[in-house]
Structures are given as structure tokens and as C-alpha cells.
Simulated scan of single mutants.
Amino acid sequence: MSVAFGTQSPGRRALKWFGLAAIVLSIAACGRYAYERREQWRSDLESRCMASGAVQMSRYVQRTNAINGPGTCGMDYPLRVAAQARGQVSYDRPQTLACQMIPTVDRWIDNVVQPAAQRWFGAAVVEVKAGSYSCRGIRGGRSGRMSEHSFGNALDVFAFVLNSGHTVVVRQHWRGETAESGFLREIFVRACDHFTTVLGPGSDAFHYDHFHLDLARHDPRWTRRVCRPRPETVQMLQPSSPTGGFGWGFGRQGSFVR
């Protein structure tokens, strides 16, 4: 069957319109990204932190080039962090973080993680297996509300390595009644005193194997915190000796739990 010159089959017409639609959507997306801007409070927070001297450049913390995009992703003053707590606790790989996260993680390690490690194991944490900057939505991908990871304002913690050589893994040790689970629950609950968002196993399907820690602004006054599972629902344990083991203890709200 012959086709008259200048006419197109339905299939070719469909492909033509599909191609035009793709071009239009691409142009629209480029235009949208061109006008997207990060929220001003993020830049303000970074600038104040850098100006305060709270973070000093060293062989463990180094400045890198500003990250701008795609979209709103990025940081004005990204920092490449090889270790926290004055170099005493290294990362399994360097992390890219915004300035304000670094002293907050330091305080959590100094005031919560290390004392808990001494109580539960008679040891010190020397390495954290973690993840940080990633331009993505809170559910992965690029759609929906952007994750705090997109701005270097979050840290995912998967495991802790002790100077004894023992490794405490969130995915493996959160459940149960062991020294490892007692340690993890203690540092999780007390992380809520340092970060504005703390998510862990039981919060949703995405955090079954790690702690998510961030400094998101949940309200204009910075008073609201999101901690899931809620601290009062976390079953707390009490170490019976610095070599491990557990006993009876008090929950966060004073309820007697095991």
C-alpha cells in the first residue's frame, strides 16, 4: 500500500508529538530550575557558622568549592570532613557537610556517644560509618520535598567502630537486649537533644538500618523537633558493667522499663 507524499502514518505522528512534548517539558524544567533558590535561612546559617569560628580548617576539615544545583541543592561553604571530635573519630569515607552540622556532631560525640561507649563497652568510638550530601528528595529521587541531605544539613549513621575492634551496626544491633542495642538506644534518644530531626529504625521503611540526624528548621523559632520513634517509646536498657551486659533501667519519661 502506497502513502501519498507529504502525509505521515499515525505512528510517526505520535512520535513527533512525543518528541515535541519532551522538548517543551525540558525547557520548562530548565526555566523552573533557573528561578529556584535555596531558602535564605540556609545561607544565613552557614555564614554565621563560618564567621563564628566554630569550625577551624585542619587536615580533618577542609573547604571545597560552593555547590550550586541542580535545582536548590548545594551549599555556599561545603566542608569536606574526614574526622570529627578534633580528629579522634574518623569517618569511613570523607563526608561533605554544611558548617553548622560539624560542631553539632562533635557535641553529640563528646557528650553522648563516647560516654555511652565507655559505659557499655569500656571502650571508645574511633570510626563512624556514615553518609551525607546527596541531591535528592526525602523519599529518594528528585521529586517532592528535598531531603536535608541535599543541603549538607544531615548525616546518616550506619555503624560505630570501637578501639577494641568491635563494630556496632544499627541494622544488626538495634533490636534485642544486648549491650549493643542498649548503646544504640541511648545515643539515639539523647541525639534528640542535639539535632532537630532524629530518625531511626521503627520511624518508617527508609530508616531501618541507620540513624538520620539533621538540623532542619521545622518552625520559624527553631523550637520544634522531630524524633521518631518517639523517645518515650524506646525500650531503654541499663549497663550492668563496663564490659557489656544489661540490667533494669528507667525510660525517658520515668517509666520503669527493661
Rank of each mutant, 00 (worst) to 15 (best):
Gly249Trp: 04
Pro78Arg: 01
Gln8Glu: 15
Val169Cys: 05
Tyr33Ala: 06
Gly140Ala: 09
Gly249Asn: 08
Val55Ala: 01
Trp222Pro: 08
Trp41His: 13
Thr96Phe: 00
Arg175Ala: 13
Val198Lys: 07
Glu127Asn: 08
Phe195Val: 06
Leu97Gln: 03
Arg119Val: 02
Gly31Leu: 04
Ala4Glu: 15
Gly69Pro: 04
Arg252Pro: 15
Arg224Asn: 03
Gln238Asp: 15
Val81Pro: 03
Ala191Tyr: 13
Leu213Ser: 07
Ser203Met: 05
Leu25Asn: 05
Ala4Thr: 15
Arg142Phe: 11
Ile187Tyr: 14
Asp92Glu: 12
Trp248Met: 09
Gly11Asp: 05
Ala82Lys: 01
Asn111Tyr: 12
Thr178Leu: 05
Tyr35Asp: 06
Gly245Thr: 07
Trp222Met: 15
Thr167Cys: 04
Ile109Val: 14
Val81Gly: 08
Gly245Cys: 01
Ala4Gln: 14
Leu184Tyr: 06
Arg171Leu: 12
Ala216Phe: 13
Ile187Pro: 10
Ser241Met: 03
Thr223Ile: 12
Pro94Met: 05
Pro242Gln: 04
Asn65Pro: 05
Ser47Leu: 10
Pro229Thr: 06
Tyr91Glu: 11
Arg80Ser: 07
Cys49Leu: 02
Gly244Leu: 00
Arg230Gln: 14
His166Asn: 14
Val3Ser: 11
Met1His: 06
Thr223Gly: 12
Cys49Phe: 01
Leu45Arg: 13
Thr223Glu: 13
His212Lys: 06
